[in-house]
Amino acid sequence: MTRLSVNINKVATLRNSRGGNLPNLIQVAKDCEAFGAEGITVHPRPDERHIRYSDVPLLKNIVTTEYNIEGYPNRPFLDLVLANRPDQCTLVPDGPGVLTSDQGWDTIGQAAFLKEVVAELQAANIRVSLFVDAEERFIEGAKDVGAERIEFYTGHYAKQFLNDPEKAVAPHARCGALANQIGLGINAGHDLNLENLSYYRKNVPELLEVSIGHALISDALYFGLQNVIQMYLRQLK
């Protein structure tokens, strides 16, 4: 069964909007796990507009499932990850001014940089996943730089899904088969929701994990956090 990792960035955004500690990010992470989530994902950005660097060690102390830290691998980010040693680090190519992740790595053009970063994280016993678009050359490039997993950027899939689900998922299914063939684990994330998640899981072979934040937290406004986590888990069965 595909694991559900809940991205709690949006919870931190709500907390930061008032400057206090409501909602309590640590309690929300604990509750997500109690309600069935199989991982917690955070994405600390340089401006700390949602997850703060100071949140990362606090979450490390309480997360009992899989702890996944994602972000752009500049030196401060890498130092943060190495100091807290999550189960997984997902590297994304976002620069400081990017609003949200909207593309994957050029694993060929940036191979030398990625190979060095991947090796540094793996030396600390941290599994490394690379955020990639569903293109065969980038999948092969991820393998060449030593990553253990890829995370498919599913933003384009989500946009195309409403008009043509089969066409939308085709490159992910094809590249997923390639990833399995060359020994890469498969994660996915970005704009996956209750409408498109089940179809994606059924068509992408050996999907190990999805990371979902924006849609899940938005749905929780209507259904409640406990209910909505169960709703997403049912889409992955």
Rank of each mutant, 00 (worst) to 15 (best):
I150A: 08
A220N: 02
I229H: 12
E136M: 00
Q160S: 14
K159Y: 04
V132W: 05
E135C: 02
H50W: 03
P57A: 09
P73W: 00
Y200V: 08
A134C: 11
K202R: 15
Q235S: 15
N84W: 12
N227Y: 07
E136D: 06
P46E: 13
N68D: 15
A170Q: 11
P96N: 11
L22S: 14
T13W: 00
V81L: 00
T65K: 15
Q122R: 13
V118D: 02
R49V: 01
L236G: 02
R127N: 10
T154H: 04
D102Q: 10
D164M: 05
N24A: 04
M1Y: 10
A12C: 13
Y153H: 15
D47V: 02
A124G: 05
T100M: 09
A12Q: 10
Q160Y: 12
N7A: 06
Q27V: 13
S129N: 03
I40H: 06
A119W: 00
S129W: 00
G146K: 07
I40F: 01
L78M: 06
L197C: 13
D164C: 07
T90D: 13
V28R: 04
G71N: 08
L207Q: 10
L25H: 08
V204W: 04
Q235T: 10
Y200W: 11
T13D: 09
R52T: 13
I26G: 02
T13V: 14
K237F: 03
R75I: 11
F113N: 12
E120W: 07
D87T: 12
A170W: 01
R3D: 11
P73A: 00
E206W: 03
C32T: 11
A147W: 00
R15Y: 07
L80Y: 03
S101C: 08
Y157C: 07
N180R: 09
R49H: 11
E209F: 12
I26C: 04
G95K: 13
E151G: 08
G95D: 13
G19V: 11
W105A: 06
A119L: 07
A119H: 10
E66G: 01
T90E: 14
A37C: 09
A147N: 06
E120Y: 05
L197S: 13
F223E: 02
D87S: 12
G36T: 00
D47M: 10
G20E: 15
T64H: 13
D87L: 06
A177H: 05
I217G: 07
I62P: 02
I182S: 05
L208R: 15
Y67V: 02
N7L: 02
S17G: 06
L192D: 09
H172Y: 15
H43V: 02
A147M: 05
G189K: 09
G146A: 09
Q122L: 05
N68A: 09
N61R: 15
I229Y: 11
Y67M: 01
K10D: 06
T64L: 12
Y72K: 04
I126N: 03
R201I: 12
M1I: 09
M231S: 08
A134H: 03
T2H: 03
V56Q: 01
D55K: 06
F113G: 06
A173P: 00
